[in-house]
Amino acid sequence: MITGVAAIATGFSLPLAMGMTVIIFAGASQLATMQLLTAGAAVAVIVLTASMINLRFLLYSASLAPHFQHLPLHWKLLLAYFTTDPAYGITIGALNEHIPTPMKHWYYAGAAGLLWVGWIIGTLTGALLGTQIPTEWSLDFAISLNFIAVLIPSIRDRATLLSALVGGGVAIVARGLPFNLGLIVGALCGIGAGLLLEQGQRREQQP
């Protein structure tokens, strides 16, 4: 719903707002796209940032792959398109444990498809309500809060905490870079810092 409100506030028409949700279908990267569009970032930076946020789907894809190995290509593509954080989170346990192989794609398509429908209805509601909401409510802040709500669960240990601190810190320092490149630089430094700490921890554990 927040995505819909934000899309209208960004200046998108209703078809553009709904088209974005159907084509990209990933909340955080859609919000990032809109934030960067408003900030006048370069197209390459927008594509790079929005895609980077979605790189995590590679991990889900790797983990789902064995369950859908027997299916024809069109089924694989459909199920892949439906993949989101909640769809993966809700289904992976059952897929790994007790859903029989011939039922797996139906189970996943049912759960993830239902989430898809809910997400589309939510965006539409937000887009239709969007124009009615007064600016004084600072509803744009809900976008930042939404990012925070996604960020917090991604911080699971010291290495991910460090990657978040370095990512945010470097992004502040590098904010002056052209085309909003500071964001990419911050993110890469954060990933590097996390990897380095993890590397160090591994070395300590080895005798």
């Binding site: 789902l64 694989k76 990512g167 992004a171 954060g190 990897l195």
Partner: peptide, 30 residues
């Protein structure tokens, strides 16, 4: 990886780096 199941191996360093993508990117964005 769903489509290329088993036919594409991702280097371990990339897989390890992917774990830090959400925290680093979102923080740099927010």
């Amino acid at each position: 990886l769903i489509v290329l199941a088993g036919r594409l191996a991702i280097p371990p360093l990339i897989l390890r780096a992917l774990r830090f993508v959400p925290s680093a990117v979102l923080s740099a964005l927010i």
